[in-house]
């Protein structure tokens, strides 16, 4: 069964392409193997946090910073760059999200709107 019969701009299915594939082209040489992946964080202006903007490959941190400058700050989007090798990022598991964040759900008293005060009270 082929559910993806309909194709869109930029989405030409492989069964329609034929003709030009080079089966005998040698595999890329091992020396060209991917450089490590780096996550890029940019501070857009003084006083704001660094924010994750994307990722790129680079041989080392210095190259990652230089590439990030070229890729993510061509229009003055940043004044400071952090790079972190992606393998060093540890993330919470989306499958655990329900249990993980559940304890915060029944604590509405942590929000200011929980407290009903008379209208006469100003500036609070």
């Amino acid at each position: 069964m082929n559910l993806l019969k309909k194709y869109y701009y930029g989405d030409i299915p492989e069964d329609k392409t034929g003709g030009s594939e080079l089966k005998d082209l040698p595999k890329s040489s091992p020396s060209g193997a991917d450089w490590p992946l780096w996550e890029i964080f940019i501070r857009s202006k003084q006083g704001l946090d660094h924010k994750h903007v994307g990722s790129l490959h680079a041989a080392d941190a210095q190259m990652a910073i230089e590439n990030a400058r070229d890729v993510y700050t061509r229009r003055m989007e940043g004044i400071s760059i952090w790079v972190v090798e992606s393998k060093h990022i540890h993330a919470s598991n989306p499958d655990d999200a329900e249990n993980f964040y559940e304890p915060a759900e029944d604590k509405v008293y942590r929000h200011p709107t929980f407290y009903d005060l008379p209208d006469e009270v100003k500036h609070m």
């Binding site: 082929n2 559910l3 019969k5 309909k6 194709y7 869109y8 701009y9 930029g10 989405d11 030409i12």
Partner: peptide
Amino acid sequence: MFGPHDSESTH
């Protein structure tokens, strides 16, 4: 660039 007609799909 927009690709084939919508009518080419029956699925």
